[in-house]
């Protein structure tokens, strides 16, 4: 058990370090890159299309959450294959590779949040204690959700390499099926019913509500978040069961 945690930490540390190895600015890129990327979006929406402040910050936060989602899923899916060299040579709990990949994506999200805080100096947001709690709950939900999906996809990917392309497109589809650029209210009623079924819709909605308009948070919001959390946990449970059942044979299919 002790080694389990140490191995997880070592995988995270190594993979994180390797990304910015050999670049002059090194670790600074972690903040610099999202800062540059989101500045573009921010400037476009501030100058070309005049939008209200909450919408602008909501857009940034939405994109950040969705890029966590796609990064976590894609890296989680690839993680067994990228670590195949080790998997073929030594026995260790295979799920560590997925845990570390999704955690790295979460760390990237945390650095993106630094950028978000920088932008919030220019466009004020209204966080409250209870709002932050709702925001954190939303992030926990999406973390649990992506973990479950990644556990499932990582196994599938070994047997069926085609899904890499499929999921890439799928993640795009989910991005546009989630109210990031638009709000739910803009959509025709029929479409709203479909969009609300996407768990990311609620996650993004409540993350925004908690962080940007924290003064509007009600107790009912936590109740709904709780339901989303249960759904995410169920997905994680199913993913874990599927993973445990299939992983012992995975070394033969690399």
């Amino acid at each position: 058990m002790n080694n389990y945690i140490e191995l997880l930490k070592e995988f995270i540390r190594t993979d994180f370090k390797l990304r910015y190895k050999n670049s002059y600015l090194g670790i600074i890129w972690i903040v610099l890159k999202p800062l540059a990327m989101f500045s573009i979006i921010y400037l476009i929406w501030s100058n070309i299309m005049v939008m209200n402040a909450d919408y602008k910050m909501g857009l940034l936060l939405g994109i950040m959450i969705m890029s966590f989602f796609s990064e976590a899923i894609m890296m989680g899916m690839d993680s067994l294959l990228t670590k195949s060299g080790i998997i073929l040579k030594i026995k260790f709990p295979r799920e560590i590779t997925i845990y570390s990949a999704v955690t790295i994506a979460l760390m990237d999200f945390a650095f993106n949040m630094i950028v978000f805080v920088i932008f919030s100096f220019f466009t004020p947001i209204h966080p409250t204690g209870i709002g932050l709690l709702l925001f954190l709950a939303a992030i926990v939900c999406i973390f649990v959700l992506t973990m479950g999906v990644s556990l499932f996809l990582s196994i599938l990917y070994i047997r069926l390499r085609d899904i890499h392309n499929l999921i890439e497109v799928g993640v795009q589809l989910i991005f546009w099926a989630t109210p990031i650029y638009y709000t739910l209210a803009m959509m025709p009623e029929k479409l709203q019913k479909i969009i609300i079924l996407n768990p990311l819709t609620l996650i993004v909605t409540y993350a925004r509500k908690g962080l940007i308009t924290g003064d509007q948070v009600r107790l009912e919001d936590f109740l709904q978040m709780g339901i989303v959390f249960l759904v995410c946990c169920a997905i994680l449970l199913l993913g874990t069961i599927f993973f445990k059942k299939k992983v012992s044979k995975i070394a033969e299919y690399f």
């Binding site: 140490e6 190594t14 060299g85």
Partner: peptide
């Protein structure tokens, strides 16, 4: 096992050792 060419010898000692 797990040796990474980009990491220093020192970092690889810890990476490989923990994998073992």
């Amino acid at each position: 096992v797990g040796f990474n060419a980009e990491l220093s010898g020192r970092e690889n000692v810890f990476l490989n050792g923990i994998i073992l």
